[in-house]
Structure formats: C-alpha cells, structure tokens
Design a protein around this nucleic acid. Sequence first.
DNA 1: TATCCCATA
Length: 741
Amino acid sequence: MSKPTRLAVKDSEPKHLPIYQHKNKLVQAVRKSPFLIVTGETGSGKTTQLPQYLHEAGFCKNGKIGITQPRRVAAITVAQRVAQEMKCTLGREVGYQVRFDDCTSQETAVKYMTDGCLLREVLADPSLSQYSVVILDEVHERSLNTDILLGLLKNVFSDPAEAAKRRSFPLKVVVMSATLESDKLSAFFNNCPVFEIPGRVFPVTCTFGSAVGPKDVERNFYVKEVVKVALDVHISEKAGDILVFLTGQSEIEHACDLLFEKAENIDYRYDVQDRTVEGLLILPLYGSMPTDQQRQIFQPPPPGIRKCVVATNIAATSLTINGIKYIVDSGFVKQLNHNSRVGMDVLEVVPISKSEAQQRAGRAGRTSAGKCFRIYTKEFWEKCMPEYTIPEIQRTSLTAVILTLKCLGVHDVIRFPYLDCPEERFILEALKQLYQFDAIDRRGKVTKLGELMVEFPLHPGLTRALLKSASLGCQDLLLPVAAMLSVENIFIRSVTWRTLEKEAAKKHRALAEKTGSINDFATLLCVFNSCKSSDRPSAWCKENWIHWRALKSAFSVETQLREILLRLQQVQDFPTESFDGNKSELLRRCLCSGYFTNVARRSVGKVFCTMDGHGSMVHVHPSSSLFEQEAELNWVIFHDVLVTSKTYIRTVCPIRYEWVKDLLPKLHEVDVYELSSVARQEVTEDEMVKWESKEAAKRQQEASAEDVMKKLEKRNTEDSVSDARARYLQRKQQREQRKAL
DNA sequence: TATCCCATA
C-alpha cells in the first residue's frame, strides 16, 4: 500500500492544521469567558496547538497552563511533540507529569498531565493557585477523574465573586471534546460559548451482518463469526490490514487459532486487484501481553502479506495501528460495571454503544477511506446497543471518589454538580461502605482514619487492610500485596500455544505451593519477595512466566505506598494495636479488616455464596490456588468478581469464620436508604436517635451472621447471578425511566 | 469442572 508520506509530514506542520486559521478568534474566546468548550475531531490539532497559542498570547504571566489527558502515554507523547514544536527541552517550558514520572521544573509554563494527577493537586490546593488556565482534554471519553474535575471546577469557579476570594487572578477553564455533547457541556458551564474546529477524517463505509441478533446477547457465538468475516475480507477485499475487535484474552487466542487453521486452507495466490495476497499474518493484541510482543503489531507486514490484528478495546483509543483499512466489529466489550444486584464491581461482557461502534469504525479511516464490517444485524444495533456508553461515574464503585469529595469539603455528595448524576443508590452504597470501613462517621463526616485513607492511591478496602497492618506493625506483609493488586495482572498465561500455557500454569502452581499455604494473596507476596531478592529479576520473571513490566511497576507502587505510610506515621498520632493470635494468621487477619465486604461461604460443592447482603452464588476462578480445593475450606475472602461463563471470584484466601464474625453484622446494620439524609447532612438529633434504635432492633433480630447467611441461601436458590443480559436490560430500562422522569 | 476489558493516583 502506498502511504502518503509527504502529505503526512506537511500535515504535521502546525500551520496546516485546521485549527490554525482560528488562532486569533480562539485566543479571544478564552480571554472573554471564564469557561469555554472547544470541540473538534481527532486531527484538528487542538491538543497540541491551543496551549501554544495561549502561551504565545501571554496567558502564562501569572501561572501555568495545565492540560489533562485520561492516559499516561498521551500526556507524555503530546508533551514531547509540543516541546519539539516550541523548540525547547522537554521538562523546561513544556513538561509533563504522570505518576512516578515528573518531568517539569520551575520554568514549566505548559504542563501536560493525567487527569488523576490534577485531581491529586486539587486535594492539596483546591483553588489551583499555580494555574492561569486549566484545559481538560478528551472529555468525551468521560473518565471518572475528568468527570469529577468538571464538577469541582464548576463548583469552585462558577461564582466569580467566590472565585475572586480564593485567587488573586481569575482562572480560565477550557473543556475540549469530540463534537458530541457540546450543548450539554455548554449548559453545564452556565451556557458558556462553544468553539467548533473542523476535523479531517476519511470516510468509512459500514455494513451490518446477519449472524448476531438480539437473541445472541448472551452466547459468545461472535468468535466464530468474526473469524468467518475476517477471512471473507482477506479473500475478497483489496490490500490493506484488518483489525478485529473482541473482548478478552482467551477469546482472542481462540480466534487466532481458528484463523490460523482456516487460513491454511486458503489459496494464497488468490488474485486481488493486481495484488497477489500470499498470506495472512495473524497477531493477537491485548493489554497484558509482553511489551516486545505488542511491538510486533506496529511493524508493517512483509510485502504481499496482509496483517490481521485481533484485539481488545485497547485498539479503540489507546493504541493506533497504521495501515488498518478494514474493521471487523464483534459488537461486544468487557466492561467493569458496578452491579447493585451482586453488590460489587463486576467485570462482564456487554454490547458496545453506538458511539463506541462508530469509534471502532473510525480506526479504519485514519490514513485513507476504509470499510467496517459489523457482524451483528441492524436489529441488534437498534434494540441492544445504547446510544452512548454509560460514563464511568455511573457504572463503577464510587467509594474512593466519594471519600475524595468529602475530604475536599464537598459534604453534600448527592447534590454535587455531576455532568451525569450517578444513581443515588450508588452514592448511598459508597457512603455505606465508607461507614463500614470507619472512614466516615454516622453523620457522614470524615473520620481521622478516613483522612489517612484518602492519602493512598488504592481502593479503600485495600487501604483499610494496609492501615490495619500498619497499626499492628506488620506492614511489610501488606505493602507488597496492596501494590501487586493495584497493578495489571502479573501472571503470563500463554502465548497462543497450548503446550506453553500448561508450562506457565505449572510454574505458577509451584509459586503458589512455595508459600506453604493455599492463599492467593500470599502467592502475590511470595512472587514479590522472591523476585525482589533474586540476582537477576527480569530473568527470574521470564523463567516463572511473570510479567516483568507489571512487577516492576508493583515495586514502584510499593515504594510509593511505603513513603506515604512513613509520612503519615510521623505527622499524625498513628493508631497502634497489639496482636495476640497466631503469627501465621497475621496477613489474613489484616486482609479481613478490608475485605469483610467480600466474604463468601461454601454453599454446595464448589459453589460459594457471598455474605454481603446480596447472597450471590459464585465460583472460584480456575487461576486461583483454591480452584478444585476440597471441602474443608468453607469461608473465603476474595479481591474481585468476574462474569464470563460463570460468576467467578478471583484472588481468594480461606479465612476462619471467627475472624469476620464481629464484622459481618456491620454489613447489615445500616440501611442504605436511611443514609440518604446523612449524605445531605440534614440529620436532626431526633432522627439520629430514631435511626439508632431501629438499628439496635435490627441487630438483635439478626443475632448472628449464620442466620443472615441461611436466609440469603434460601433466597438465592432460584437466583441465577450469571444472567448478565437480564441485568444489562434492567439497567437500561432504569436509565430510560429516569430519563423519562 | 476450566481462565484474566481498558485506564488512572
């Protein structure tokens, strides 16, 4: 395929970007209004150019220009390019800051950063006094941190008089987004002006398939179908590479195997428009793949060979592969959703939204016109796919976010200005959990412990366990575990070949056995320590099928957590406790104080029943050392839940009922709906007394956790939890109902 | 009875 190389070079010159002719008007628009929305498709140049225009126009006299990105790589690469264009050394006038990598200095006037970084800065300095302009980029992606920043910026800077009290000069806020939803954003920021920049994209023609209809939502029928369509494309379409979208690792490897088998039977000398397509290069792509293997994806295929990349959603926004002309879209994605019925965050496969389908199709039109083959029917599109992807803030656990808001002085977390309100139930659930972790008191006020917790970049449950271990003086057990659980999966499972997969599993089993216990958390600790004390850690990883990149980042996270803990122990009067139990139980006892919300008890055979008040039936994931383990392990805690062929719990550890006995009633003592008034901070003394007596009565009623459990088990015999579709439709219906109201 | 979306502090 001939690439328009010269054109591409010319395009990257700032003056040829669509944004250039709007330069003066754009700068004026920022001058005039405290808030401004800028919309433009990818390729309009807004991310790299606008900060430069503002810098040139003298906006950096009083403070910095800060630009947020939802992803680390984006923040770094864009900063590199802008530094180049401004002809300065990266880290001086132009810099970036992401976790573990601060490339800024006193001189830095234009600072690219992740949205999470800016949120941390807000915690330390709510009026953002260092900045003259804050630009939130890629707002249409609706990342959790960006959404919170939107609300905070509106809250703090909407009232000019109030803002003036906080700062010596006004702050300019620019919100950048793809064209969708610009009216909504403008309305959110007091009907502020919208500036539109035309983009430049090539047309992509889309076709619907006939295979996957509304009834196939639940079956993973689509793997076979994408393989068939990809082969059709290979045989009948002009030269150009193929990108296939699937949902997960095992599916992708299965599809690659099928493609390989079937492509062997193709007549490779099939003549397509004067180009002899001799073969098909099949490449899997997913996030947990080793980096060197990922790099292969970007190399152009050998002459005459067509590349076919089978990827997860990683290829939708995070990675751009050149030369893609054809998309095969399965119509599904694996997504982390907060599930009220299961009562926790669950990873599940759901249909993508229409806007996401368009995003996928767009990956074929980056360098020339392309084609997108959707394997699902028009009916599936109309009936099963929502218009937009539900923003993260409406579908994940809000526990950490609510704690952050509370610590920022936002007490009324229900009436906080969300661009899209999460369901009140989700907010109340988060409050309930914070209360259970002792992070807030019964009036919704942040406790001393809560103030300690917000300092840690971890899930609150994990933070709770870590703080427990610190107060017992055994933080060396929990710090590595917390670090390992907050990085990507460290176990490499396979590289397409089944024999090697068995090899990997054998090594991982050996590591689990080395701990002398059956406990996935202990295995993580063991991997961490074994590798750290090894002479050649990267070789050790290779030998044991461990992800070196992931483990390295776990080392950094552990160091960071250790530093935070040390700082807090020096400043605050840190709580201390003594432990008189068996030393070998220490790790598990600490885990219990953060994971008592994730307790399950063996029900029948291999089925476990969760104890969180929802009583879901779950199975131990095959990757766990508890998988297939026998009946004496009756009580377990687990780190997360995953719905694929079954509802699986992952990273599991057996516990004794006595350890959680006193904590479990706490799960049932607070009625979520009664927290509503606490959330609003409108509780009168009378209400408080009434509420507390009611709770006391309830506690008496549910004398022990055993009783609760029996009740739950009874209720759950008819309940199928793996019915992802029913839940999906239920959520959809609820959303529509709310909209109608 | 058989397997792990993507990000982020």
